[in-house]
Every structure is written in C-alpha cells, then in structure tokens.
Design a protein around this nucleic acid. Structure first.
Lengths: 329, 329
DNA sequence: TTGAAAGCGCTACCAT
DNA sequence: ATGGTAGCGCTTTCAA
C-alpha cells in the first residue's frame, strides 16, 4: 500500500510537501499541488491513519461495551450515541461481552491499550473489581444503566427507584391490595433492587404493608412466564404484579391467561421500558417509557464534555420516564 | 502515559529487553524479568497498540457498517458476528449510516484509512457508485442482505426470491385468490423486488394470474398500517396479503381489524423475518424465520476465510428459512 | 542474555 | 514555497 514516501518519490517532491497537499495546508504552489495530486491518484494513495494517530497521539476512538446488542436498551442506545459521536468525528469501537462480567474488564483494558479516548459502559452490575478497573482506566468511563456516582464514576441512569414508587402508586390506585414483584439478578441494582425498593416504599407510604414477594429471574419472556406460573400458584390472592421489564411482563401475562384470569382485570400488570413488544402484544402492557436513545445520546455528550477538559459539572444524570397506560393496568 | 522507553530507563535495561518480557519471549533471565516487571507495575505501563499496529502492519480491526443498529436484522447480526470476531481476537469498528447511502461510501473510505482488515456491510441497496467503492476497497468487503455476487462481491443473503415463492404457495393453498404485496423502496432488491418476484412466480406457476398490487412504503408498523388502509379501500376483493416484513404485516393487520375484518380468516396475512413482535402481537403473524444471527456469523466467518488468504471458494451464501405458522395464515 | 539501531508512516519544526 | 530531520512507541534483526 502506497505511502507518503512513494507519492513523494513519484511526484519528485519531499514527503513534507505531499503531507501539505494531503492536509490542504497553506503555502503550496498550484503546480506542485497538481503534480502531487496526480501521483496520489496514480498510486491510489490513502492516508494511513494509524501512523497519523501515533504521531498525533489522537485516535478519535470511543470504546463502547454492551452486554449484548440485541436488546432495545442497548440497540437504541448505540444508535443514539453513535449519532453524537459521528457528528463529532469520532469512531465507535464496539464490544459485546455476552453477559460475561470478566469480559467487561478485559475490554476496558484492551480499549485502553488501543488508546481509545473514552469508554461508554452499559453495565448490569457493579462490583469492587470493576469499579477498581474503571477508576484505573486512563480513558474516562461513562456508565449507563447503573449508578457509579458513589465511586465518582459519571453515570447515566434511569429513575429506577421512582419508577418502582410510581408503579406501586399506580397499582394501589387501581385497587390492588396484594402486590408482587418479579425482578432479575440481585446483582443488578438498577433493574432489580431499586425498582423493588421503590415499590416497597410506595406501599409503606400508603400503609399497605409489604410486597407479597420479590421473585428473581432473567430478562426474557420465557423466564417471566415460568416465574409467574409458579408465583400465581403460591399466591392465590395476588391482584397486582410489577415486573422489572416489559418482556417479563409479557411472559407473566401469558401465565395469567393460562389460568383463565384476565390481566388488567383480575390481576393488574405493569412493566418497565416501553419495549415495542408490549405495545403490540395482547393485552398490551401498561408500562413506563424509558428513553433509551436519549440515554445513549446523553452518555455520549457527557463523555465529550469530559474529553474537552471541562471539569465534570455533574456526577450523574437521572433520566425521567413517562407513564404509558395500556390494557394491563 | 508511560512507554517502553520509560520502563527501560527505570529498570535499567534496553527497550528491546522490555519488549521481550512484555511479549513473553524466550531468552530473558528471570532476574531481569522481575526487574522489568517491577518497573512496569510501578509505572502502570500499558502497551500502546497503535504503535504496535503501525510497526506490525496489523490492526485486528474489522469495520461493520449498518443502516441502523436498532433493528432485529442488524442487532442480532452484530451480536452474531462480534462473537466470531471476538474469538478470533478481532475488534469491531461499528458505524451506523442512519440510512444515508452517502455515508456508506464515506465509512468504507474511512475504514480503509484506519486500515481495517475487512468490512462487513449491511446494505439496503446497491448502486454503481457503491459497487465501485467496494471493488476499490483494499479491505475485502462482505455484503449482508443484498446480493453483490454479480459484481464479484462475496455476499450473505437470505433466500428472498424463494420466500416470495413460498409465500405465494402458502397463500394460494390457504384458499386466497386475490393476493397483494406491500414492499419497501424499489432500490431494495432483496426486500422489495425479489420477494415480489417470487410471489409473482408462484402465482404464474399455478396459473393464478398476477398479484393485485405491488405497493411500497417503509420498514415500519405505521407505514404498513397506512398503506394497507388505502389498499383495502381500493381492493375490496383482497383475500391474501404478503408483506415484505413482519412489522409491515403488523400494521396491515391493524388496518384489517379496523375494517371489522379478521386477519387470518377474511384476509390471510404473511410477513417475513420472524420478528419477535409478530409472535406476541394479536393475532400473531404467520411468517418465515430468517436467521439473522447466523447471517452475522456467516459473514464473519466468510470474511475470516478471505483474510486467511484462501482463494474464495464461494461467491455467495444463501441462507435458508423456516415456515412459521401462526394465526394470520 | 542483552543492547543498538533501523524503520513502520506520519507531522512539525527549522532551514533554505 | 519546499526540503531535511527528528520523533511518536513499538518490533526485529544483527552484534556483542
């Protein structure tokens, strides 16, 4: 592959001159410009950005780490952030951890070696080792989905505690008295713990006691179905069900229907996220809209601010949500 | 940020020696190894991969270009291909064109300058300029979704003509006599043209004449709804509707229901892709399963073969599909 | 077992 | 207006 040197030789000028015309710098005679351009075309010369990056100590690279891309939160998020980065002339180095916690750490290390300028990490948990690695990272890390602000890690989070609180109120004001919660892994503070605690808080506040149960499973329809099936058998008096995600809610509704009950009538069901699935399913899932694309955008903008050397002006951004009323509540 | 040089100075050895211990090369005394390791830890040295890449002329980078990541085809595809690349020690540079044809070209150029080893392009069309750029690209390009084999561009495609043919047969054998098609932009050969032509072929083959119409819109539920609404008004005798995607089908079903008709009974509806949306919607969408994750995987594997210098043994890979029977047909 | 030096492709400073 | 040169951080002979 042709280099500056080759072009220079062919055009009969120095590398410096070629560099000047390639970068459109001021002070090159039109005649030489033409000569050089001809050589460039002839050789099909293409700037070697890795050399340029080494020289300039600037890669324009942003690392993005996600547990998987095929989820509405991450796929919409990546679209959102890549729009921002593209406008800023940055490229996105994407890594999917396939839910492996260990890989998150490996990729943070690798990305630093690749000299990325910053990292956006979609996290599903946050443990000591991960926090350690993030704090050691030369490239600033912005966390999305979990709150790392306690450790001084800038974070974009959804208002998970409040969504739980709202869910509780919503269920209560729709007449529910026996309310349960289906969450995910307990290591997932945002999705499992906070949403549950918010619910708990709402019940306490209205003096309605404790939630009936706090069940845990995975982020799938199937898992929601399986859990609901069992829980329904154990709690015959259940009349309100708050699910940590819309997919789980869809599964739960299926279990409810199989029992000959009507979701939204016998048992009110609420999900979180406003996954498109919930809008087409039948009955449609009442939920809370989470702005996943904005989360990606905000993360990107926050990171760009950090990179521009401004002293961080916020420790975290908490995104709001909207109530979406549909058939199940 | 500490470099080999810094480590060498601190450890009192040469850069060469440091390089040797960093890369675990044979022939370094344990004592020096320890000395060097100590210096590395002290300085928090991290290999600068951009320097290494320049020196070794190897980036381990793969460029991936998608129209948007928030679609089942691309998000599942990216998950599939990134699994393969990760195992091979390659990183993924991701670009989203936001449906801009011009950006596809820009990114191919940029990626070549970044010295990616190969490019995977999720295309929604294929015009002369794009073909030109692909053929000029130093990094081999694998096309996904559109067939570029005519221009000697290795491609991963779904069996779009046959899916149309099958759709026709399926509709016919379910008693339909007046069949229409809702597609997308005519520049999208795979999704619009081939699927329609397959349908046409099936009708011809069974001597049932021509499809009632070939309408075109976008890849959205809304667009499917709007088109179907109008088409239903124009073609009162319609009893079979083939939609280029499941989302379009979902929209169409909504229009059908609004007319007081029953999808699957009065009008049979077929989609393509097996989008999860179609499985939870009501009525559920009869469709054809497209293995999007496998498409990503196959593209990755094909590219890796190309990179390993084997003479290309196939000009394209046509993925098969499965019939998914649900309520609308 | 270790070190010196050249060179990957580029930019930028200093001369001319 | 143009060229020479040093150097970004690394690997890799070749010598010692």
């Amino acid at each position: 592959m042709a280099s500056l040197h080759d072009v220079a030789k062919l055009a009969g000028v120095s590398k410096s001159t070629v560099s000047r015309v390639v970068n459109n710098e001021y002070g090159v005679k039109q005649a030489t410009k033409d000569k050089v351009q001809k050589a460039i075309d002839e050789l099909g010369y293409q700037t070697n950005l890795v050399a340029k990056e080494l020289k300039s100590q600037k890669t324009n690279l942003i690392g993005v780490i996600v547990p998987r891309v095929a989820s509405s939160a991450t796929s919409q998020g990546v679209d959102g952030l890549s729009r921002v980065f593209d406008n800023a002339g940055k490229q996105v180095l994407l890594a999917s951890t396939q839910q492996s916690f260990q890989k998150e750490i490996e990729f943070i290390r690798l990305f630093n070696q690749k000299r990325v300028e910053g990292i956006i990490l979609y996290a599903t948990h946050l443990d000591e080792e991960l926090v350690e690695v993030i704090l050691q990272s030369a490239a600033p890390v912005v966390l999305v989905g979990q709150d790392g602000s306690l450790f001084n890690i800038p974070s974009i989070v959804h208002d998970d505690f409040r969504v739980g609180f709202e869910a509780g109120n919503r269920l209560l004001s729709n007449g529910c008295r026996n309310i349960g919660f289906i969450g995910v892994a307990s290591s997932d503070i945002a999705v499992d713990k906070l949403r549950y605690q918010g619910l708990e808080q709402a019940l306490q506040f209205k003096r309605k006691g404790e939630p009936l149960f706090h069940s845990r499973g995975e982020f799938t329809i199937e898992s929601g179905y399986l859990q609901a099936k069992q829980l329904l058998a154990e709690h015959a008096n259940l009349d309100g069900l708050f699910c940590a995600t819309d997919r789980i809610a869809i599964g739960a509704v299926k279990a409810i229907q199989e029992l000959g009950l009507t979701a939204g009538l016998d048992i009110k069901v609420l999900g979180v996220g406003n996954d498109e699935l919930g809008s087409v399913s039948s009955p449609s899932i009442s939920t809370f809209n989470y702005p996943f694309d904005k989360a990606g955008e905000s993360a990107a903008k926050l990171l760009m601010d950090l990179l521009s050397g401004e002293p961080a002006s916020m420790s975290k951004i908490v995104l709001t949500f909207q109530t979406i009323d549909r058939e199940t509540c």
